[in-house]
Simulated scan of single mutants.
Amino acid sequence: MALKCYWSVAVLAGVFCHVGVTTGHAAKDIMGPVSGLPMPRYVSLKSDHVNVRGGPTKDNDVSWVYTRVGLPVEITAEFENWRRVRDSEGSEGWVYHSLLSGKRTAVVTLKSKDDLAPLYDRADPASAVSAKLQAGVIASVKRCSAGWCRITGSGFDGWIEQQRLWGVYADEKID
């Protein structure tokens, strides 16, 4: 177990801590202090214009803007109506909660940007390949089990090895 402490930018918030396993898996026994939902957890962006701030208030400067609706992000902290999120590149910042959706999405990740990830008809590498996806493709996650996820997107629907996705935890089951 590891103790994680987060300094809040807001003076009144002070410091809040939680104890958890730092393996990257969602620890279901750690609940967000505001939402009561598990933390960390994956969500997606509701809009194609999401301001990311340096701290959990509108008084903080906008650090950057996400422009991809459906992009998966991981909530790592909560403060009032703000959520600290991390993206697939490891960048972190604060987003207003209403700009996030509980809809599960994932982004295809590959070792090399030139590689393609096979999408199969079934959760079996011996089944037919229905598509090949580039790194960075965003897909809706329909279900995950036994190391495979069924994903859909514009012009594709099939099964991919779970390890090729960012937006689902290793061995996470989604129904």
Rank of each mutant, 00 (worst) to 15 (best):
L3F: 07
Y6I: 13
W7D: 07
S8E: 00
V9Q: 11
A10V: 03
L12G: 15
V15H: 05
C17R: 06
C17M: 09
H18Q: 07
V21Y: 14
H25I: 10
A26P: 09
M31H: 09
M31I: 15
M31L: 15
G32Q: 08
V34T: 13
S35V: 00
G36R: 02
P38S: 04
M39D: 01
P40E: 11
Y42E: 04
V43P: 03
V43R: 03
S44L: 04
S44Y: 06
L45F: 12
L45A: 02
R53E: 04
G55Y: 00
G55L: 02
T57K: 05
D59W: 05
N60R: 01
V62F: 01
S63K: 14
T67C: 11
R68S: 14
G70C: 08
L71F: 04
E78T: 01
E80R: 12
R86S: 09
D87N: 15
S88F: 09
E89Y: 00
E92Q: 11
E92Y: 04
G93L: 08
Y96L: 01
Y96G: 00
S98W: 10
S98V: 04
L100P: 09
K103D: 13
K103L: 10
T105S: 15
V107K: 09
V108P: 01
V108G: 03
V108W: 02
K111W: 05
K111F: 00
D121M: 09
R122I: 03
A123D: 11
A126H: 01
V129E: 01
S130Y: 09
A131Y: 12
A131N: 15
K132C: 01
A139I: 03
S140G: 10
R143I: 04
C144N: 02
C144V: 04
A146S: 00
G147R: 01
G147H: 10
C149N: 07
I151C: 05
T152Q: 08
G153H: 13
G153T: 13
S154A: 14
G158E: 12
I160M: 12
Q163S: 14
W166G: 05
K173E: 12
